[in-house]
Each structure stands twice: as C-alpha cells, then as structure tokens.
Design a protein around this nucleic acid. Sequence first.
RNA 1: GGGCUCGUAGCUCAGUUGGCUAGAGCACACCCCUGAUAAGGGUGGGGUCGUUGGUUCGAAUCCAACCGGGCCCA
Length: 1003
Amino acid sequence: MNEKKKNYKDTLNLPKTDFDMRAGLLKKEPAMQARWAKMDLYGRIRDARAGGPRFILHDGPPYANGNIHMGTALNKILKDIVIRYRNMTGFDAPFIHGWDCHGLPIEYRVQSELGDELSEMPKTDIRRRCAEYAGKYVKIQSEQFQQLGVLGEIDEPYKPYITMDPQYESAVLDVFARLVEQGLIFRQLKPVHWSIENRTALAEAELEYHDRKDDSIYVLLAGADSSALKNLFGLTGDAPAYLMIWTTTPWTLPANLAVAVHPDFEYSAVKFTHADKEIIAVIASDLVEKVCGIGGIEKFEVLAAARGAALVDAGITYLHPLIENKVCPVVPANYVTLEDGTGLVHTAPGHGMEDYGTALKYDLEVYCPVGEDGVLDETAPEWLIGKSVWDANPLVVDFLSKAGTLFHKQVITHSYPHDWRSKTPTIFRATEQWFVSVDGDMKRGTTLREMAMDACRKNADDGGMDFIPAWGRNRLAGMLESRPDWCISRQRSWGLPIPAFYNEAGQALLTPASVRAVAKSFAERGSDCWFTDSPTELLGDYDPVFDTDLAEPNAFDAAKLHTGHDIFDVWFESGSSWFAAAVQRGLIDEIPVDLYLEGSDQHRGWFQLSLLPALGAAGLPPFRTVLTHGFVVTEDGLKMSKSLGNTIDVIDQLTKRGADIIRLWVASQNYTDDVRCSENLIAQSEDAYRKIRNTLRFCMGSCSDFEPVRHAVELPEHSLDRWMRLQLHQLVRDVRGAFDRYEFHRATRLMYEFCTVQASSIYMAAAKDRLYCELPDSPRRRATQSVLHEVLVVLVKLLAPILPHTAEEAWEHIPARSPNEPDSVHLAMMPEYDEQMLEMAEDLRPVNPDLGQFSSDEIQVGPAWIWDRLLELRADGLVKLEALRNAGVKNPLDAEAVFTIADDNPAAGTFLETYLGELEDLLGVGYARIEKAGGTDIDSVSETLPIGVRVEDTREKYSRCARSWKRRPDVGSDADYPDLSARDAAVMKALANTATTTPATHK
RNA sequence: GGGCUCGUAGCUCAGUUGGCUAGAGCACACCCCUGAUAAGGGUGGGGUCGUUGGUUCGAAUCCAACCGGGCCCA
C-alpha cells in the first residue's frame, strides 16, 4: 500500500465505534445483570408503567428440585419475552415468579439421605429438612433463571411466591374452604394407586410405566350351579362347567367379587380335557382358539354359544376360586375387550378402577384385604394372612393348581405402573381418601365438570378461555370430559395438611368455618403447627358447637378431637396459585389473568387442576388465554433422557455461549410443536447472533459523527434511503404483529433476515461509498446516517425482549441517543411505524407524474413496485457481474453497468436517470450509464419495465479513482487531483479548506 | 391400545380461501473484497412437500389409510 493511498484513507469517514465486534457475553452478561439489580431495573419498569393497562402473566411454579434444564429455560425465557414486550408496549405487566415446594420427590430425596435415622424422626424434623432442601433449590433455580436474563419478582428485594410460605398455605386453605362451602369435598373408600414402598396413594402423574414380569394365569371358576350354566347353553351331560378368567395379579383373587362380561359379545361353551377330566369352559367365542392354543389344548369342541347379556340375565353365578362356598355373580361391563384374556373379566372392586365402577353400579362391596404395607389382612384366606401381595402370587397359583382350577400359567412381560420415585411396582388398593367431586352438584347449582366444559366451549370474551395453539381447547376439554373425581389426599409428611379433625367415632370435622380457623393458624404459625399444636389450639376461636354447617355439632368435642394424617396433593396447592399468589399482592381483581404459559403436558396438569379449583371457588376460570409450548427434543426429534445420554445441559450452554445465545435459540423456535435442540442448533443461533450484532455495530460505526437533532435531514425523493426506511417500518409493523400474536419465531426471523438481506447485503453495501467518501456533512451522507440511526434505535428496541443484554449494551453505544429516551432500553417504548408511509408505498397509482408511462396506459406504479423492479435489475446485474468476475474482472469497481432502453421510450429513460446513481451503488460497480438501443430488442428483466442491463470491463477504458477505487470517466477531470474522480477531487478540496479554517482538528 | 398433535431442502422457517417450473435465510461449494476485517459481498448446487391411495381439470394445501416423532393417558 503506497503512501498516497494511505493519505486518502485518512480522508475517509470510516466506521468508528466502541461496540465490540466480539460479544464477550460471558463477562458482560453477569455485569449487566448486577447493574440491573443495583439500579432496580424491574422496579423502575413497574414505576414507569404504573397506571397503564394491566397485563398479568401468571407464572406456573417449577418444582424446587434440581437444576433447571433446557425445558425449564425454554418456558421461562418465553415468559420473559412476553413480559418484556408487554412492558415495552405500555402495559403494566408484573412478573411474579413462583416455586412449587411440597411433594413426594423432595420428601423422597430427603428420606433417602436420612436412611435409618428416618424411623425415629418426628414429622416436623423431616419437614424442616424438606423445607431446607426446597429453599436451597429455589435459590439455585432463581439464580439460574436470572443468569438467563429473566426479570421479575424472583429475588431480593422482591419475593416470588413459594408454596410452602405460611401466607400461601393459608390461601390454599381459603380456596379449599370455598370448595367445602360448595359441597364439593367428600371422603370415600376408593381404590387408588398405592405405593407400598412409600405407603401412599399416588396421583396418576406420579406413576411411571415400566415393563415387568408377572404370572399370567387362566383360572377356571366353577359354576355355582353347574346345570344352570349348562342349561343356558342347552347342554347336558356330566362334564362340569366353568367360567374362565384371566389375570396377571393373582394376589387380587382373594378380593374377587364378580366376573364381568361384555353384554354384546358372544361366548362359547367349549369342551376339552383338563387334568385328565372332561370339562366345559365358557370363553369369548373370538378367543376360544387363542386361549386353547395358549393352554396347549389340541382337541376342543365348541358346543354352543350365547351372548354375554344372556349370561347376566340368566343370573349365572360361580364359586369363589379361593373361598369355600362363596358365590359370586356375573355382571355386564362395556370395558371388557377381546384383546387379552378370555373375555370374562375378574372383578375385584377394591383393586381396580373399573372394577370399582362396576361395584358401585351393581352394589358389590368395595372389599380390600390388603393393608397399607401391602400385606394381606385377617379377612383373607388363612394361608394368605400376613403375606405380602408379591409373596401371595405364587401361593395363589399353587393353591389353584392343587385345586385343579388353574387352566394355564405363563410368565409374561407387560407394562406395569411403578411409583415414579422409588421405581417399585404399585398396586390398586381401596382406602379412605378425600376427593373433589367433579359431578356432584355445587351450591351454585351446577357441577364442576359442566362448568369446565362450558368454559372450554366459550372464548375468553364470553367468560371462557382462548387457546394458543387452538387445539389446546380440544385437548383440555377431552380430559375434563372423562376425568374422574380428583383424589386430593396423600399419606405423606411433606405437604400442606388437609385440615380435617376426627372424633372418637372416626367422623370427620371439616366445614368452611373449621377450615378457615386452621387457615388462620397456618397464616400465623405455618403449617408445621398442624403437627405440634393441639386441635384446640389449631382451631383457635372456632368451636364446633356453634358451627351451623354441622348436622351434629355436639358429636365434636374440640378437646377430644385428633388431627388427620392426610396432606394435600401438591397439584391442589399449585392449582390454587391463581388465588394464593394474587391475594398477598392485591391482584385478586385481575382474575382471570391474561395468560398462562406452560408446556403442553400441563393440559392435564396445572391448567386443568387450576381451572377446577377456580371454577369451584370463584366461579371463574383462572386465566383468559392458555399458551402451550412443546418439549425440547434432540436434533433427531427424539425425547431427551438422562439414561440415553442425549440431553443438552442449559447451564453448560449458558456458561459456554451466554444467555443471549440461548434466548435467541428459544426465540427462533416455533414452540407450538416440539423444539429440537443440540449443540449444533445452538451454534447456529450463535452465528445468527453475530450477524445481528455486526449489523448493529455497522450502524453505530457509521453514525459516530451523527447527532440526529443537528444532522438529521429529509430523505431525498427516489433514494435508496427512502427504500430502507420503508423496509424498516414494514419490519416494525410485522415484528410487532408477530410479538402481539406470540409468534416469536416469526419476529426473530424477520429481524434476522432484515439484518442479513435488507440492511447488510443491500443497503449497507450500497451506502458504503457515500458514507465513506462524501464530505462528512454532505446531505447525501447525512440522509444515509439519518436512516442508519433510525435503523439502529428501532432494531435495538425490537430486539430488547429477546436479547436483553445485547440490546442494553447496544443502547449504551447508540451515538447521540435522544435525551428523551430512558437510560435503559428496557424502559423504552417499542417503536411505532408510519402507517401512512407504508400505505403510500403499497399504493399503486395509474401514472407516476415523474415517470410518465412505460409501455401502456394501464400500468400502475408506486414506490414499492418501483423498488421491486430496481432490485430485479440489481439481481440481474449481479448475475452478470459474477460471469464477468469469472472472466477475470474480479472487482465490480473495475466494471460499469450499462442499462439499455429503446430509443422510443423516453419514460424509461427518465426512470433510469432518476435511479442511475442508486443502481450504481446497488450493484457496487464503478460506474453506471444509459445506452439507447436502436430497436425494441431489449433483454429486459421485467415485462412491464423494458430496461436491460449488462456489465463491462472498464480496466482499459477508465482510470481508477485512488480514493473511491471506482473506475469512471471523470477520473482526472480535476487537474489538482489527477488520480481522483470529480466527486472525490471536490471532496478533497473541501476538506483542505476545512482543515485550514479549523486547524484545531489536526491537533 | 386410546386421546391430542406434528412431519416442506442438512438446519430454522414461508407457503392466503387447492391454481403459474415449491420460496427465504443459515449451513455447504466455488469466487470476490481486504476502507464493517476473528468482518463484508457475489454466484451456485440442494426438496418425488413422511408414504400410499382417493376427490379434482389441477393437491404441499381437501379426504382416507399407513409410517415415523412428541405430549397425555391406559
């Protein structure tokens, strides 16, 4: 590089900025977060938006156990984007975070750590340890969320809502009292999933299905009246008749009380030899062959057939397989299938949900001979008493085998429910539990199910709910339609006690007033007092004698009561958060809140289990809109699991790449479906991040000597700058629209493509010449700076919800940022767009007075149309430049663009003259000129605009300007600067002038 | 097994009420620039729109079945 070139370089206005090209997020983000905390950014946003329209997103509480994972991060970042965007559009949108602290997983964890100490430990000690454990993870997760740039009432000086907080617990009881008031709470013996290991009833959510090996047995049940059974089939003879059933849980046979058949199925009486005797067995017709095959029966004879309904109508009974002289009925049931077994279903109401339903219908006893320890009690056959159900299995099989009623036994592997924590198999067992009734009539004259279904049918504006994506409505409705009563009791320590007292007769004291009395105690002393205080103390001023809700108030002597041992299902606690989190903060009037935003699994979970308490207690849904997102899956779309080792750790990514990278990844995903995540995919976001960052950086660098108030100018008519501003305003319109609809991936893509295409590839590339080479204060340069400055400010604001750290850093580097703007971008308002400008641009006018007409009277043009054509000319020219490059002209500045028009088309000529300068820059060529072709044979890019373009090598033809590097005919036209083009020579003279008049600049 | 749901280039996404040889950006390849430089620009290749059938003059778009993935149940 020679001396002279260097001199000219010094005369250029090259970009200048302190905004680092390399992000350095790992260092900057923590510092930024610390500063936000120090300045109380969140509090300042609250103050700034006070009085604005409220927007409440109610945070679903994550479970305070373990580090956050990618899914938790996805969820919280999406919420944070919503909150930030809403606040930037003028809403008063607080963000109150929450944590779910009670529950089995934590208790189980603490128990495992305690080991043998556990047995001697009082409940309060276990609970204290659980509380410490939960508190520890609340803190850890809180910090992790904050590291992701999540804002809100999550840490000091603000308080998130914590489900183990006394105030919160008290509020949950408040909700409960209202449900009691509505008559929705009842107590009943009912089979529940029971964990023997943990001695507790389990919610369905607490089950995992794993393969397990079990004895699959086919059992013959002798007809109580063998001839009656044979008569039904029109049979005679000596062979005894049996019903054949199938089960994989032999231990439930002691509790067998019936056999269920499908009334519509056909059943066959089959004759074959079993244990050297000829017998007749009843099997569903479609399964005869299969069952005989399984049993190794080669020779069998189907004697006759009858409908299931006929068996029922004939009052067929059978002899209990284990208990002598016990006679049981055949009952109809529609859930009987022909998938497995024999089509006749062993029914034990104490050990199965469907069996239980049948029992209620046909008045069978809900008999359960199994204790909470999984051991058969004294009501069982003597040889089974004291045996665990697992030990009972082989004994039962053995008994049947000896009795000759075991048709067949085989070991099968099947999917069986396991306790999600201990991984041990669960059983169904009937126990006394507390329930929320779904179909019982409330005081308000309807049922919870009816209310819920009704809310599902209506939109938010009609008192119902809105769903994003729309199918959420269907999914929630489907679950509500079929869900059973909600069992809310658990037999554990770590949870909110169900405030039921019992008298000596075992009657429960549970009324709205008694619950509220306990709520008061819990608010004052925390729920630990349930385990330390006497019932009298817990009830305070409440005296059952004066409780009008009690039918027999005198049956309950406060002094003789004892407290119940049940705690609430944790879902009831989190399902009451709409009330409990709001009541402490004076936000009760905001119910239903605007938005719940969780993973799609929460249709069954939190959404449903918040809806039910809210409808029961308040008569309203808790939310107006439910937004769900999919799950984080691997690059191949498969589920992530620790055991498969295909997970990606969010903290790992955070400490490796920075929060804004993860946030950009989140924002770029269409979360309505599952989102794929891998190292690769996040790396892709990192690339995108760099592009965005550099686009901002170029704007800053180019505006280093630009102050909008002093230098901003009107953009010239027909200038590329006008096009750019048009693009920018379209961007604002489209991005805001996308944000408004929660379509963050659209917003992100729009902004990213704007940076890549419109800004970087088209505008900035074209604007370089004028930015660098023109006089600093030239109107043309100032116009470009005016646009770039606007691009910068607008883009930083639009990006702020997604990239809070980078946007804030950029905000600080915006040259001459308006004093009217706040000192944090997160306090700023989202940019508005010039609707009129956009309309005018799209507007097509029959004839543009500046341009006349192109080829016919019908043609209609407008700015948008014109720029589309110009960009087509650009694309065409670029292809030709590429060809020229391959032919040896490497640098487009060594080429000229020649635009050809027909002689007789003055309109096209005028058009070209108007835009020739912009076309030169758009193509990045040294020079552009117009050529009139003789005929009409123009190789035009557009039918409506007959203009052709070609490019030519000018290395022989023109000299290169030593300053702008452009080859053009006017190089050397100024004798003082023979190596410069006319424009650059003039600029140099002007600069020389300035230099002599203001020597200070050379100091 | 059931309910809901998704399936467009290697990746992330567009594709209005069915209608021109299915579009972007990234990635990739090749090339350029070296005055956004651990930057910037250009060109190009790449898709039987999960599969198969059907409706239709015409289907990525509507219907059915199937295959594969996910969530929730069983």
